[in-house]
Design a protein around this nucleic acid. Structure first.
Length: 576
RNA sequence: GCACCAGUAGCUUAGCUGGAUAGAGCACUCGGCUACGAACCGAGAGGUCGGGGAUUCGAAUUCCUCCUGGUGCACCA
C-alpha cells in the first residue's frame, strides 16, 4: 500500500471512532473519503451529507461534532469544517521524508511492484495485415499495445507480447492474382513493400468491378490453404518482405514481441476447434455455412464458410485454445480498432466451448478509436493513407530544425532529434483517451509546446542540468543525513505529492487499459517541477542542507519522468 | 432499423464508481531572461458540460428521451 492510501485508511479510522455510532461501518466511511479537486480544501475530505439521515442532524452539525471529537495523530496538521465537508490537511513534513526516502532507496525501481508476480498476461497488438505499409492506424495500435505491455511489466506481471500478423486470408488470393499480372512492372529490389502495396491497390480496383477476378482470388486462397507449393513459396516471400520492413519500424518505436505467430500459424490448428465445437453440439448449419449461435441480439459466429474455407474467427478461436495451453494466461488482451468490437464479442462467447472459464473470463478486447483524415477514413485499398515512415521523418526533421535554432552546439543532434520527434508523435497518440476518434492534423501532431512529449522531455533535461551543475551523485548521499522537512515551499510540497502518486497511477492506467492516465500524470509532474524550478533555486543558494534536500527532490523527479516516459515508449535525452 | 463509442471554451481535451467556484494545453491580451536552459513560469479573457425531462440535500457524472457525428450488424480482417 502506498503512503496516501495508508493515510486515508488512518483517517477513516479516526472518523469512525469520532462518530461512535454502530450504524456506520468503517468501510462506508473509507469509501466516502475523497481527494478534493481544489487543493485549498485540503488533502482529504469527508462529506457528511449522507450521515444526516442516519444521525438525524444537519451535515454541518455532524461535521462539527466529528471535528470536536476526533483524535488525530501527527500525520494531520489541521481539520476544518466547510459547508458540511470535513477537510483534512496533512503534515507535509511526514510526506516529504517518506516519499523521498522511498525514491532514494528504490531509485529506478520506484513505481514498480511485485503484485503481478507469477501471473501471465498476453498483450496482442500491432498485428498488421502484411503486404501493406505501416500507416497511422498501425501506429496508434502499436504504441498503445507497447504501453500496456510495459505497464503490466512494471507491476511485476509476466507479459508476453504477440504480434498476430494478418498473414492469411482471401486477401492473399487477391494479392497473388495481382502479383501474377503486374510483377514485371515493378522493381522488387528497391522498395518491395511499396511495390506489393501498389499491386494490392490496383488489383482490388479491378476485382471490385470484375467478379471473375474475385473468384480467381478465392480459388488461389483455397489452393494456398491446401498447401500448394508454388503459392506457399509466394506467400512466404510476401511475408518476409513485410516483416523485414515492420521490424525496422518496431525497432524505432522500441516495441517488443515475444511471438510473431500470426493467422497462418493457426492453419493446422483449426480442425481441432471445429471438432470440439461439433462434439459439444453447438455447430450448426446455416445457409451452407457452419456457425455457432451466440445470442444477445448478435448474429451467429461463422466458423466455416459455405465453400468449406475457414475464416478469421476460426483462427482467433484456434489462437485462444493454443494460448491457453501454451501460456496459461490470466489475461489475454487484444488491442484493435473499435470496428472489431462485435467480432470479439462473438468469439469470446464461442470461447466458452473451447477453454476453461478461467481463460474465457480473461479475454479482454481493448478497442481504440479510428484515425481519420479530413477527407474521410483511411484505406490502403483507396490509396488514401498517412504512412508512418514519412510522418516520423517529418517529426524528426522538425525537431532538428528547432534544435539547430535553439541549441546549435548540441552534440549528437541527430540522435536527440530522433528522440524528440518520436516523443512528440508517440505522446500525441497516447495523451487522450483511447476511445476518442482522431482526425489527423499535421500541425497538431507535430506540436512541441504545452502538453506534449517534448515539454516533458525538456523538463527532464532541466533536472539533469541542475544535478550536473551541482555535481550531485545519488550514490554519495545517505538519505538519513538529509533534512526533508526543509522542503516547505508550496511548489516543493506540491511536487512531492505528485511524485507520491506514481505507483497508483501506473496501477490505474493498467487496470483501465488506458496509458493516457500515465501520460496526463507526467504532464502534471512536469508542470509541478517547472513551477518549483521557477520559484526555488537549487544551485544558487547558500544553505547547504536545503540545497541537498532540493537536489534529492530534483533527482526524484528525474527518476519518475524518465521511467514514466519509458513505459510510454519515449526516450529521455540528457540534453536537448 | 438495432447495437456500441463519442458530443465539455474558437480548436485539442481532463474530470464520468454523484460532492464544494467544471481543470488544462493551443490560439488571443498582458507580465517575467545581467537567472539552475524562456521548448518555461505567472496573470487575464473565453463554458446553456449537445437539447429536454427524471432521481437526489447535491448531476458534466446515474436513469429515460431526442438530436448530431463515427463504427458495426454472416461467409473481408
Amino acid at each position: 500500500m502506498n503512503i496516501m492510501e495508508e493515510i486515508k485508511v488512518n483517517i477513516a479510522n479516526m472518523i469512525y471512532k469520532a462518530i461512535d455510532n454502530n450504524q456506520i461501518t468503517l468501510d462506508e466511511i473509507k469509501e466516502k473519503i475523497e481527494v478534493p479537486k481544489d487543493k485549498n480544501n485540503g488533502d482529504f475530505s469527508y462529506p457528511c451529507f449522507n450521515l444526516a439521515k442516519v444521525l438525524r442532524n444537519s451535515p454541518v452539525n455532524i461535521a462539527n461534532s466529528i471535528k470536536d471529537n476526533i483524535i488525530t495523530d501527527n500525520s494531520i496538521s489541521k481539520v476544518e469544517v466547510v459547508n458540511g465537508f470535513l477537510n483534512f490537511y496533512l503534515n507535509s513534513d511526514n510526506i516529504a521524508s517518506e516519499v523521498l526516502k522511498k525514491i532514494v532507496e528504490e531509485k529506478e525501481n520506484y513505481g514498480s511492484t511485485k503484485e503481478g508476480e507469477g501471473v501471465n498476461i498476453i498483450v496482442e497488438y500491432s498485428s498488421p495485415n502484411i503486404a501493406k505499409p505501416f500507416h497511422l492506424g498501425h501506429f496508434r495500435n502499436t504504441v498503445l499495445g507497447k504501453a500496456l505491455y510495459d505497464l503490466y511489466e512494471t507491476l511485476g506481471y509476466n507479459v508476453t507480447g504477440i504480434n498476430h500478423l494478418g498473414d492469411w486470408g482471401r486477401q492473399f488470393g487477391i494479392l497473388i492474382e495481382g502479383y501474377r499480372r503486374f510483377k514485371d512492372e515493378y522493381n522488387f529490389d528497391k522498395n518491395p513493400l511499396e511495390a506489393l502495396s501498389d499491386i494490392y491497390v490496383r488489383i482490388n480496383k479491378i476485382a471490385k468491378e470484375d467478379d471473375a477476378v474475385m473468384d480467381k482470388a478465392r480459388e488461389n486462397f483455397k489452393k494456398l490453404e491446401q498447401g500448394d507449393e508454388e503459392l506457399t513459396k509466394l506467400w512466404k516471400y510476401f511475408r518476409d518482405i513485410s516483416l523485414k520492413e515492420y521490424k525496422r519500424i518496431y525497432d524505432i518505436l522500441g516495441s517488443k514481441f515475444d511471438s510473431y505467430n500470426g493467422e497462418a500459424f493457426y492453419n493446422d490448428k483449426m480442425e481441432e476447434v471445429i471438432e470440439i465445437l461439433d462434439k459439444k453440439g453447438v455447430l450448426k448449419d446455416s445457409q451452407g455455412a457452419k456457425v455457432v449461435e451466440v445470442g444477445n441480439n448478435m448474429p451467429p459466429c461463422i466458423v466455416l464458410k459455405s465453400n468449406g474455407s475457414t475464416i478469421y474467427a476460426t483462427r482467433d478461436l484456434a489462437a485462444i485454445l493454443y494460448r491457453a495451453r501454451t501460456y496459461d494466461f490470466t489475461k489475454c488482451i487484444y488491442v484493435t480498432a473499435t470496428e472489431q468490437i462485435l467480432h470479439f464479442k462473438q468469439i469470446f462467447e464461442v470461447a466458452k466451448y473451447l477453454v476453461d472459464e478461467k481463460y474465457q473470463k480473461g479475454l479482454v478486447h481493448v478497442a481504440y478509436g479510428m484515425i481519420r483524415l479530413k477527407t474521410g477514413k483511411m484505406s490502403t485499398r483507396e490509396g488514401n493513407v498517412i504512412y508512418i515512415d514519412e510522418l516520423i521523418k517529418e517529426a524528426i526533421q522538425k525537431a532538428k530544425d528547432i534544435m539547430t535554432a535553439k541549441n546549435p552546439n548540441l552534440e549528437n543532434i541527430d540522435e536527440v532529434s530522433k528522440k524528440i520527434g518520436l516523443g512528440a508523435l508517440i505522446f500525441n497518440y497516447l495523451k487522450s483517451g483511447k476511445n476518442k476518434d482522431i482526425i489527423f492534423d499535421l500541425d497538431d501532431t507535430l506540436r512541441f509546446d504545452g502538453e506534449t512529449g517534448p515539454y516533458i522531455q525538456y523538463t527532464y533535461v532541466r533536472t539533469k542540468s541542475i544535478l550536473e551543475k551541482v555535481g550531485f551523485n545519488i550514490e554519495d548521499i545517505s538519505s538519513d543525513s538529509i533534512d526533508y522537512t526543509l522542503l516547505k515551499e508550496k511548489q516543493e510540497v506540491e511536487l512531492i505529492k505528485e511524485l507520491e502518486k506514481f505507483e497508483s497511477i501506473i496501477r490505474k492506467a493498467a487496470n483501465e487499459y488506458e496509458p493516457s492516465v500515465l501520460a496526463r500524470y507526467l504532464i502534471d509532474v512536469a508542470t509541478a517541477f517547472s513551477r518549483f524550478y521557477n520559484e526555488c533555486s537549487v544551485a544558487n543558494i547558500d544553505d547547504e542542507n536545503l540545497k541537498k534536500a532540493r537536489c534529492v527532490l530534483v533527482y526524484a523527479t528525474s527518476i519518475v519522468i524518465k521511467k514514466g516516459l519509458s513505459i510510454l515508449g519515449i526516450d529521455s535525452p540528457e540534453k536537448m
